[in-house]
Write a protein that binds this DNA or RNA. Structure first.
Lengths: 346, 346
DNA sequence: TTGTAGGCGTTATCAT
DNA sequence: ATGATAACGCCTACAA
C-alpha cells in the first residue's frame, strides 16, 4: 500500500455505509496491472494475455466493477439520448405515439427517456428542466407556450407534437385537424344530420378542433353556434360522459356528435344510451383517434383514424434533421391526415 | 491566437460538415475570459460581474453551447438512470406498469429510459446490451432465462417483473397468480360451473397461470385435463378469439373460461358470441388484468384486477434496495394480489 | 470578481 | 503483452 492510496477512500466503504463505486483504478490495483490493461480486458480487445485477462475480470467481478458511463461517454462521444414528454400514459393514444418514437429512435441507436407530465404545465417545466440537462433533444406534447418552453429548454432542440407549424416557432409534427374534421362532418351530413355537436377538449378558447368543426359545419350550410360545442376538460371516457350529458341538456335536438378523441366519443355513446338514446339511430357518434379500443365497444366507433406510430416516427425524423442542421420538415410532410373509418356508431 | 489553439479544430466545422459541439473552452475564448468564469455564468453562481456574465452568456448563445452531460456527470456524480424493458406498448397493461415506474422514479429524481422488446428474446438481448452500458439498473419483463439475462447484463442490477421469486435469482416483483386464480375459479364454481377452460398465454409448457388453474380446479373437485387449456401465443384480442374458437371446437361442453389476460378474455367473449353463445348465460368469461377497457366492452368483463401502478412502483423500490445494498423485498411484500372484480361477463 | 491547478473515470496513442 | 501519458469537458478548491 503506497502513500497516496491511503488518502483515497478504501473501497470497503465509508462512514455512511454507502460504498464508493469501484473504478478502473481499483480493479487495476487489485489485479496488479495498469488501468490500461483493465480497459483492454473489460472491453475485450485483443493484445492481452488470456491469463491476465482472466485475472483482471475476476478482480472486476469481485469489486462489482462497471465502467462509468459518464467517463466513457466523455472520451467516446457517447450516444444520443432524446427525451419524450407524454401527457397521459393511460390514454391509449400516447403509448402508440411513444411506440413510434421508440421504434424510430432504436433504429438510429438512440435512447429515449420518458416523462409523464400528466397534462400539468408545472410538471412539464420540471420535465424539461431535467431533460434539458440529460437529453440531446426533446419531443413531446406541451400545454405551455413557446416562451415558457424555451426558458426551460436552455437551447436543447425541441419538436412539439400536435401543434400546427404556424402555432409554434419550434419544429413540429402535426395532425391535419381541418382535413379530418371535414371528413367527419361531411360523413354525418351525407347521412342526413343537420344538428351536429362537438365534444371539444381544448381549454384555450377556440382550439383547433373547434375552429375546424365550425369551418366544416359552416361550409356544409349548418348553423354555427357556440352552444353546439361543450368542453370536456378531462380527455377520458368519464369526461366524455359528462360532456355528452351537458350537450343533451342544452341541445336536446342534437342527432350527431364528434368527439375530441375516441375516449370522449366512447363516453358520449355511453351517456347517450344511458339517456335512452339509441346509437347510431337517435345519435350518431364519431371519434377522433382511431384507437383499437373503438372496435371493441358497442356499437363499434366510427372514427377519424390517426397513424400514431407515424406521428412518433416523424417526430424522431425531425429531431434528426435538427441535429444535422437540416431544415425540419414543414407543411404536409410534417402532418398526419386522419382517415375516416366507418363503423357502427355513425 | 496562440499556437495550441491552431491545432484545435475550429468551431466553424470540419470537412464532413458536422460541426464539433462547442465546449466551455470555446465560449471562454470567444468571451475573452477563463473557463471558470464561463462555468460561473452558465450555472449562475454569484461572484461574477453582471456585465461579464451577460457577455459570457451571449457568447454561449452564439456558439449554441450546452454543457456536456458526460463531463458534468463525471464530476458531479450524475443522476440515476434506470432502464425499463416492456414487451408490448400496445397492450394497455404495460403502459400502466410503466406509469408506476415513471412515477416512482420521478419521485426519486431518477430518469427512465424505455425499450420495447416486442416480446422478442433477441431484442431483449439487444436492449440489455444497450442498457447495461447506459443505465444504473434495469427493470422489465423478459422471456429469456436468468443465465442469458446475466450474460447481457454485465453486472447491472436487474429487477424482473411478473416472475415468482423462486423462478429467478434476480430481485423480482410478482403477481400472486395462485391466489388470483383461486379467486376466479372459486367464483365460477360458486356460480355452478363445472366445465371450465383456460385460455393460457405462457409458451413454456405449464406456465404459472396453467399450474395455478389446475391446482384450483383440482381443489374444487373438477376434472383436470390438458384439453381444458388452449394456448394463445398472441396476447391480444385476436389471439383470444382464435384460442376461444379452438377451445369451443375441442370442448363444446365448456361453460366458463378464464383468460390469460383481459385482452384474451375480450377476444373470448367475441368469439363465443360469434359462435352463437350468449355471455354470460352460455359462457362465463373471466379476465386477468383489470384493464379499464374491460368496463367498456359488452358485457363488461369480470376480471382479476391487478394493481399495475403498484407493480411499477414496487419495481423501483426494489431497484433502490439493490442500489443501497439492502436485501430486496421477497415474499408477499414483493407480490401484488389480484382482486376479483365482478361485472357482467361472469 | 477573476484566474490557476487539479482531478473526476475512461480510452487512445505511443512507448517499451 | 503491458504500461505511461495525454486527452475528453467540466467543476471545486484555492490563489490572486
Amino acid at each position: 500500500m503506497r502513500g497516496d492510496d491511503q488518502q483515497r477512500e478504501t473501497r470497503a466503504g465509508r462512514a455512511d455505509g454507502t460504498r464508493r463505486r469501484a473504478t478502473i483504478h481499483d480493479v487495476a490495483q487489485l489485479a496488479g496491472v495498469s488501468r490500461q490493461t483493465v480497459s483492454r480486458a473489460v472491453n475485450d480487445k485483443g493484445e492481452i494475455d488470456p491469463a491476465t485477462k482472466e485475472r483482471v475480470l475476476e478482480a472486476a467481478r469481485r469489486l462489482d466493477y462497471r465502467p462509468s458511463r459518464f467517463a466513457r461517454g466523455l472520451v467516446r462521444k457517447g450516444g444520443v439520448t432524446t427525451g419524450l414528454v407524454i401527457p397521459d400514459l393511460m390514454n391509449p393514444f400516447f403509448p402508440e405515439v411513444a411506440a413510434g418514437v421508440l421504434e424510430a429512435a432504436e433504429q438510429r441507436g438512440w435512447q429515449v427517456v420518458v416523462w409523464d407530465s400528466r397534462t400539468d404545465p408545472a410538471r412539464e417545466g420540471e420535465a424539461l428542466d431535467m431533460l434539458s440537462h440529460q437529453a440531446d433533444a426533446v419531443v413531446g406534447y406541451f400545454k405551455n407556450g413557446d416562451d415558457v418552453l424555451a426558458r426551460h429548454l436552455g437551447g436543447v432542440p425541441l419538436v412539439v407534437l400536435e401543434r400546427g407549424p404556424q402555432q409554434t416557432r419550434f419544429a413540429a409534427v402535426g395532425i391535419d385537424v381541418a382535413a379530418g374534421m371535414e371528413r367527419g362532418v361531411a360523413h354525418l351530413v351525407a347521412s342526413g344530420h343537420r344538428a351536429i355537436g362537438l365534444l371539444d377538449g381544448d381549454a384555450e378558447s377556440p382550439g383547433p378542433r373547434r375552429l375546424a368543426f365550425e369551418d366544416a359545419t359552416r361550409r356544409h350550410g349548418l348553423p354555427v353556434d357556440a352552444s353546439w360545442t361543450v368542453l370536456c376538460p378531462e380527455h377520458s371516457v368519464t369526461g366524455g360522459e359528462a360532456g355528452m350529458a351537458r350537450l343533451l341538456a342544452e341541445r336536446p335536438e342534437v342527432t350527431a356528435v364528434v368527439g375530441f378523441n375516441d375516449l370522449i366519443a366512447v363516453g358520449a355513446i355511453r351517456a347517450a344510451r344511458r339517456a335512452g338514446r339509441r346509437v347510431p339511430d337517435d345519435l350518431a357518434v364519431v371519434g377522433f383517434d382511431g384507437l383499437s379500443l373503438g372496435e371493441l365497444v358497442e356499437p363499434a366507433l366510427t372514427t377519424l383514424h390517426i397513424d400514431k406510430r407515424r406521428l412518433g416516427r416523424l417526430a424522431v425524423e425531425q429531431v434528426a434533421r435538427l441535429r444535422s442542421g437540416e431544415d425540419p420538415l414543414t407543411g404536409p410532410d410534417a402532418w398526419v391526415v386522419p382517415e375516416l373509418v366507418i363503423r357502427a356508431s355513425a
